[in-house]
Amino acid sequence: MTSFSDKQLIDFVYAEARLLDEQRFDAWLDLFSEDGHYWMPLAPGQQDPRLHASLLYEDKLLLRVRVERLAGARTFSQQPRSRCHHLLQQPSVEQADHEAGTYTLRTAFHYVETRQDTQTLFAGWATHELVTQDAALRIRLKRVELVNCDAAFGNINLFM
């Protein structure tokens, strides 16, 4: 089993955010394992994505729909398009099982999404559950917890 150093794990999280900021969504999607999920809970500390509402809980198929839709000619809410910016605190490695090749990192972030004249700031924490597949890191779960997850939001168009 390939083993990853803390620096490699942390760099993975930075690189992931950069792909989003550069809107390289296909490359971003490739970072997820086939059974990967992206989860934004609706309630602080929420454990259940099935029988409680979430802002987002999407498997790779739905994430692919989302990515392809962003590029669609008739995606009117993205004409003009949104842009985004991640500002990350240094991720901390919360758990590392080198034998199994699984790792958990936690990253505090500020995220800005803009469209036309509106700029919206979101703040929260991302948890990455990573697995090793074909000697590379893949995201099995990215959990994005907003500090105000239960607030009334306008459109959140891109990925945090």
Partner: peptide, 13 residues
């Protein structure tokens, strides 16, 4: 979630 959330691809449009 997929139709009515502020993150909804349907709701956005």
């Amino acid at each position: 979630r997929i139709i009515n959330a502020p993150t909804s691809m349907v709701g956005h449009d």
